[in-house]
């Protein structure tokens, strides 16, 4: 009888504790959502009351309605489509060779020692600084934009992939060797899956860089795309339209990182 009493109160205590924990979690969620909303409200208020110049900082509601109007005319979707095609093609154009070369560099020390000075020499150069040369070589068409993105994505991915392979715990290499893995099996069973976590970090980084690069590249030498929308509207002093471009970049950046995070949990369920 008394035993049950004690048990009961113990449950009570834990129940209270659990409820507190849930309340704390709710608070955290609320804080996460509240900061962007707070900034938007403040912005709206300051802009509407004229405390900040509404020509430079148009209220968010105006930006949203501008987005809606631009969407209605259909032209906006053209720009989005152009930018997305450039990003996706350029991204693949950079990531695929980067993974191949990175794996080779990780697996074979001679290749690593031979190629790493080249990688180190080119890596610090901002891809945009190479844009003139890229334009000379590849012309002013779509392909040169894809190449620009590809180059900027290439370096973080190649470095992370190589590091991913070389950092595989020595004991797994011993296991593979002891159990008679040949080169092909070693590649598919040890090197590739073992380097995947670090490789995906590199791809995540590359994704962010790709977005930065395309917008800047479209500002400099293009007549379409989201970067172009921003630049042209700025020049024409159509600032709400310019902000629409910024909102779109923010949205796609978030979307891409969500996609890659989803890919991460799909590809490395063992982490």
């Amino acid at each position: 009888m008394e035993d049950q009493q004690i048990n009961h109160s113990a449950i009570q205590v834990e129940k209270e504790e659990y409820k507190k924990q849930q309340r704390r979690d709710k608070l955290k969620q609320f804080l996460t959502i509240s900061s962007p909303i707070l900034v938007l409200i403040l912005w709206e208020f300051l802009s509407r009351t004229g405390l900040i110049d509404h020509r430079f900082f148009p209220p968010p509601t105006l930006i949203l309605s501008t987005l809606y109007q631009m969407g209605l005319s259909g032209e906006l979707f053209n720009h989005i489509e152009v930018s997305l095609i450039r990003i996706i093609c350029g991204f693949l154009l950079g990531v695929i060779p980067a993974i191949c070369i990175g794996l080779l560099m990780g697996m074979y020390a001679p290749i690593r020692h031979f190629l790493s000075p080249l990688v180190m020499a080119f890596m610090p150069i901002p891809t945009l600084a190479m844009l003139p040369i890229i334009l000379i070589i590849f012309g002013i068409g779509e392909f040169s934009k894809m190449v620009t993105i590809a180059i900027s994505v290439f370096f973080p991915v190649v470095i992370n992939t190589a590091a991913g392979v070389t950092n595989i715990d020595r004991i797994y290499v011993d296991v593979a060797k002891n159990y008679g893995a040949n080169a092909k099996k070693f590649f598919f069973k040890i090197a590739l899956p073992g380097s995947l976590p670090v490789m995906l970090e590199g791809i995540q980084m590359g994704q962010a860089i790709a977005l930065l690069t395309i917008v800047a590249a479209e500002m400099i030498g293009a007549n379409s795309g989201i970067g172009y929308v921003i630049w042209m509207n700025y020049k024409a002093f159509l600032l709400p339209q310019m902000y629409v471009g910024l909102v779109l970049i923010s949205f796609f950046g978030y979307l891409f990182s969500l996609i890659i995070r989803g890919l991460q949990s799909k590809l490395i369920p063992w982490k």
Binding site: D169, I171, D174, V175, Y179, G180, I268
Partner: peptide, 17 residues
């Protein structure tokens, strides 16, 4: 038959399999 196989320490179990 393979000549030998090693029982590695527990961290020799491959995490991605």
């Amino acid at each position: 038959r393979p000549l030998q196989s090693m029982v590695f320490q527990e961290r020799g179990v491959i995490p991605w399999m």
